[in-house]
């Protein structure tokens, strides 16, 4: 349990880093993201093309594979939802 929590923090850090690097957001801005921070539809930087970049970069950094039919509005709805999706993949 303790191990998994540790892994989750790593994944969350990776998701934060990907959003910062791909969308060109400031360190301070992504540091303020929490579980409920809305993403798709709320961040103007996150258009459908940028989504492709975010997903691909997440795949690279977490060594996971995201299938296209797994990508929907729900997983991109909030920072918490995206992090949970990535953690489910990476910590399997």
């Amino acid at each position: 349990m303790a191990l998994q929590r540790e892994g989750f923090a790593e994944v969350e850090k990776a998701v934060r880093g990907v959003l910062r690097d791909v969308l060109g957001l400031s360190e301070a801005r992504v540091a303020a993201f929490d579980e409920s921070t809305p993403l798709f539809g709320a961040l103007p930087e996150l258009d459908s093309l940028a989504v492709a970049g975010v997903l691909t970069e997440l795949e690279d950094r977490l060594a996971i594979l995201i299938e296209d039919d797994e990508v929907d509005g729900d997983m991109l709805e909030s920072f918490g939802a995206l992090t949970r999706f990535a953690a489910d993949k990476a910590l399997r």
Binding site: D21, V22, G24, E45, A50, G53, T56, E57
Partner: peptide, 11 residues
Amino acid sequence: GVPLWRRAEPG
């Protein structure tokens, strides 16, 4: 460093 190739705006 940052992956500049992922940025929509050249950085």
